[in-house]
Write a protein that binds this DNA or RNA. Structure first.
Lengths: 628, 628
DNA sequence: ATGTCGGCGCGCCGCCGACAA
DNA sequence: TTGTCGGCGGCGCGCCGACAT
């Protein structure tokens, strides 16, 4: 797990898989040697953060709002004291900020990259937010069945009681032993002896999350996600005797200092190599964004009224949810301080404004255009949705420099209107036009490729799209007409209607996921049509199926034969794609390439085809009873 | 207690009394605005220490071996983590290193200064080295009776059991509560509830010492003296989870870095103000020594064969013991690196070499000349003496620069002989002559004024001598003839013979202490001859007696009526003068000015005169039975 | 006078099944 | 399926006198 020494800090770098498991499903780290745009504005936001009292930066240098860089190093680190993960990224500014030749360069992303079509499976991991009982009472940890059965070593259930010792390695490589027992009525998995010590040593409290991960080499690893404590990052400021207190500068517990941001920005602006530290769980968007993603996003002609969706991590960090919204305005966040900056370019209005009160502005590359149909809640029949943990932008202007005059932006922009702050507004088209003329941004494919209504649904399977889970567009692309009460789902290109949709109003929000199975490896299925000689269709390993979501190959495979129940499969998919649990568990339809179609929990798992080489999963979040 | 903020470190400075109580009885700090000699050699020794692996100082600058400085600041500090006390001393180099006009300046010392004749009593304090039981078992602390009765708040013995809560303030001003109970058979004082917590929080172990002090304002304070852990100062290097590890530079836990010594030496040599940090418990002699003390010491014509005594702290830091020795050689410690340096000028041979194996060389101002009578053990009849904690000089040369040529010392020194290291030797007289001619050292009265045989015993009482406790000269000054088996003790100028001495061989080592009492304040003695109208003799306050040791007024007074037993008086005197316990408790004779003479433990205390205005204490460490 | 020991009581840590959501 | 609770057993902290030094 500990494999590389970072000679700068003399601290070991971390296994990338464990790092990403701790960082969460939203985090994407730039790939080595790829090209990114560095946003000093975002860096400062990351350092100052919300509520940390950084209200002015009189000494902040005059630097461009975005700087094209090559990624010279990515070190995955973990804080010695808190186990918090962070990354040190080495960056080399590139001369041609315009970046016209980027297509020949590597600008991919490591980690959970929806654009990457590598067959590298995300390692099996599971995150659970600690309950009061986990953190306080009796020193035990209630292990969710999925975690125990898929991540922990297999338990010998013939013993009475079934019990074993599990050993897990933390981010520092330290081993922790836990007594894992399966007991109680009804039976459940528990960690007992050793757990309390772990909680005390790691100073865990209810609300913190624990991550279990089965690494590729078979090692069981354990990571920590600290719950956000109130405003800002006051965690280490609490009177926590026995903890090391702040260490100056960048690094352990010091997070990112404003000084280090100024230093980085200066180096970047002067074209010299520099280094940034990124805390993935600091509730701040990445300030190093893949160049092609940014360029693709800026190719869109953003304008008010556009409908979009955006992914957020749930408050307990267990899942990712998508939220719908409408662009209310397109204007530069701080035209004076950061003229022409695309950072948080979009002012947005959310369909669920109470949950996203603090998110007023977002950057274009974080959102994905959808149809401008009216949006509805994802799961109207499921229990009240978990609160969402969303980035908390500062409620004060960052580095305001009111006396400054924009240095290379003409104030006479046509169509400027109703911007209360600057007296003008970037109308979408004009803004884009401006950006392209001024050479503000080169173009490329965005991280979440914006799709217009015309290109949404019926794209061919081979399209290398970045969609993880597309919250359903109500209508099938071009056939989408406003009043149709029976939206179609794409299952092998054939529409599927749900009973609910037939009887329901237009409030049903739907989507579909397709999973394609490889040859089954269960002994009973060895003679299936998907034997080795037929695997050539997808070139899959035995027992793996190719996963399609909404008719699109997302570049993942699964061995369906390894699941013993719907629950396990649900869990695996839910975890693999970080889909919000309530959606995943309640509103799925499975259909395999062998023709078997199943709705969650209907019949025993054995009846479901394990021989399929592809599995289509249709999600209907607006209905509990789905007819097939 | 916390009264001044040190703006440099933003750390509070410490009450001087508590600081000195923690520092130990040997420590003398220079007074503000006084003049001192700064010894870079000693500073480096203090930083490098014994066994810390500082074997070379190739980068150490060429600076004079001693630099006259004015003391611009003295800050008493305590380490945040360990409670270790240290001092930050601001120094301003003085131009006239020769220092001919020093007599008009203030060069006194704060703290336990034997030369100062102020009547400021040393505050009541008590130090105890923790036993295994104190540190480990049952969470209790066995409080020595003296500490409980003189330092703790008065206990209500009518309660059953007598119990109270005592609150003590540590060096940081933090309050600690202890349950103080008087119980058991036989009765004894114990700290129970709260003690274990204190031990754990302070990470105390058996061998560490705790200091209780009753401050002038009545506050009870508690300090810590860490036991030396093995060689050097490896205490903080141990795997002590939860402790902050080293912080670079000078200050908390970092002790004194070699770099900081180099910096200080450079500043000093160039005449610029600088700052040094001194850890009084680092087993290194002070490297900032009162100018007059150094000058007085260098006025002596040191030569081999001279007899001297030197004070050391006992290993458990509870007492101070004096050791006798003979000067074996007088030569500069490192003539190449520190030419002409008086630091550790004297090579010595100890009467008890096993206890002082590591002390090969000492600086002249640390020793006091005595008669060259054969030396004997202090307490041949008392239990085996405690091991002594003595400075551990490095067993390698400090900053050797063999190629260097002494810069302002002529190599042609007459009489140089039998120095194996340099091929010459500073014979005493010549050495002194040389020093005075070269103007190496100005002259003044030494810290322990060296006394020749001719001036030892019969000096008049008013002489302001620095003697704390003179380990007995066997014979009465001029009448000392070699074979006399009945040495005399000075009690009001009259010789006293002990039975033991009458029958014993010449192995009896003796000394005498005189305490002079003020008017007794006990009600039964109000009509005593020492009533108010007669107090004019010494101008004492009611109830105080003047203390004389060996017929010499040491500038202290005591209220004899405040003692209820010999034990209490013993303890008080023992603590006040830091006399080694075994000596103090076993070998004292008291004689008051009213004629009462008592030997330890003979009769009830009530029979002893409390009306005396002076009390003479005769110490005979060679005898248990003393006839009067 | 005080260091060390064994006794022992009590509080709390932590393991358990019973419930209920 | 799993969160929370009360029960309770066991262990160790810490208070005690006994006894020795």
């Amino acid at each position: 797990m500990i494999n590389v020494m970072d000679h700068h800090m003399n601290k070991p770098t971390l296994d990338s898989q464990l790092w990403h498991a701790c960082a969460g499903g939203m985090v994407q780290m730039p790939e080595l040697n790829s090209k990114i745009f560095y946003f000093p504005q975002g860096h400062a936001e990351h350092a100052g953060g919300a509520g940390t009292g950084v209200t002015s930066a009189a000494g902040f240098p005059r630097v461009p709002p975005y700087i094209l860089c090559a990624v010279s190093a990515v070190n995955f680190m973990a804080d010695t004291n808190t186990d918090e993960v962070y990354a040190k990224i080495g960056l080399v500014p590139l001369k041609n900020n315009n970046e016209n030749d980027y297509d020949n360069s590597n600008d991919g992303f490591l980690g959970f990259d929806r654009n990457k079509n590598d067959n590298q499976d995300k390692p099996t991991s599971f995150a659970k937010t600690l309950t009061q009982s986990d953190a306080n009472n009796g020193g035990g940890f209630s292990v969710p069945r999925y975690c125990a059965e898929t991540i922990f070593p297999r338990l010998d259930y013939t013993a009475e009681p079934p019990v074993q010792t599990v050993v897990a390695k933390d981010v520092h490589g330290k081993l922790w032993k836990f007594r894992h027992i399966y007991r109680g009525t009804p039976r459940r998995h528990l960690l007992t002896t050793g757990w309390s010590n772990f909680v005390n040593q790691k100073k865990l409290v209810a609300g913190d999350s624990i991550v279990f991960l089965r690494a590729d080499n078979g090692d069981l690893c354990v990571g920590i996600r600290r719950a956000k404590r109130g405003i800002g990052r006051g965690f280490l400021d609490s009177n926590c005797s026995g903890w090391n207190t702040a260490v100056a500068g960048v690094g352990d517990s010091g997070k990112v200092s404003v000084d280090s941001v100024v230093e980085a920005a200066n180096l970047a602006a002067s074209g010299r190599p520099f280094e940034v530290v990124f805390y993935p769980r600091a509730s701040t968007p990445e300030f190093c964004v893949k160049a092609s993603t940014v360029k693709a996003a800026m190719r869109i002609q953003w304008c008010p009224g556009m409908r979009f969706k955006m992914a957020f991590e749930t408050e307990d960090s267990s899942r990712i949810s998508w939220f719908m919204g409408t662009i209310s305005s397109v204007d530069v966040d701080d035209q004076v301080r950061w003229p022409n900056s695309p950072w948080r370019l979009l002012q947005v209005a959310w369909d669920e404004p109470d949950l996203l009160q603090n998110v007023k502005r977002v950057s274009p590359w974080l959102v994905e255009l959808v149809s401008n149909m009216p949006a509805i809640h994802l799961s109207p029949f499921s229990p009240p949705r978990k609160k969402l943990r969303v980035p908390q932008p500062p409620d004060f202007p960052l580095f305001p420099m009111p006396s400054m005059i924009p240095n290379h932006i003409p104030n006479s922009i046509q169509g400027a209107r109703h911007n209360p702050q600057f007296g003008f507004d970037h109308h979408l088209h004009q803004h884009h036009q401006y950006l392209s003329k001024i050479q503000s941004f080169p173009f490329g494919s965005p991280r979440f490729p914006p799709r217009s209504i015309e290109t949404t649904q019926e794209t061919e399977e081979k399209e290398n799209v970045s969609c993880l889970l597309t919250i359903g567009n109500k209508c099938n692309s071009k056939s989408s007409s406003k009043d149709e009460k029976k939206p179609t789902f794409s299952l092998f290109g054939q529409p599927i209607f749900t009973e609910q949709q037939l009887s329901d109003s237009s409030s049903g929000e739907t989507g579909s996921v397709v999973v394609q199975n490889g040859p089954g490896s269960s002994s009973s299925d060895e003679a299936s049509p998907w034997s080795k000689d037929r695997r050539s269709e997808f070139g899959l390993e035995t027992g793996h199926c190719k996963i399609f979501m909404e008719s699109e190959d997302v570049g993942r495979t699964l061995d369906l034969t390894s699941f013993r129940s719907y629950e396990e499969l649900h869990r695996k998919l839910s975890d693999m794609f970080s889909v919000e649990k309530s959606v995943m568990m309640n509103n799925l339809i499975y259909r395999t390439s062998t023709g078997a179609v199943k709705h969650t929990g209907d019949e025993p798992f054995s009846e479901f085809s394990k021989t399929a080489q592809r599995l289509t999963i249709v999600m209907d979040s607006g209905s509990d009873n789905v007819g097939v």
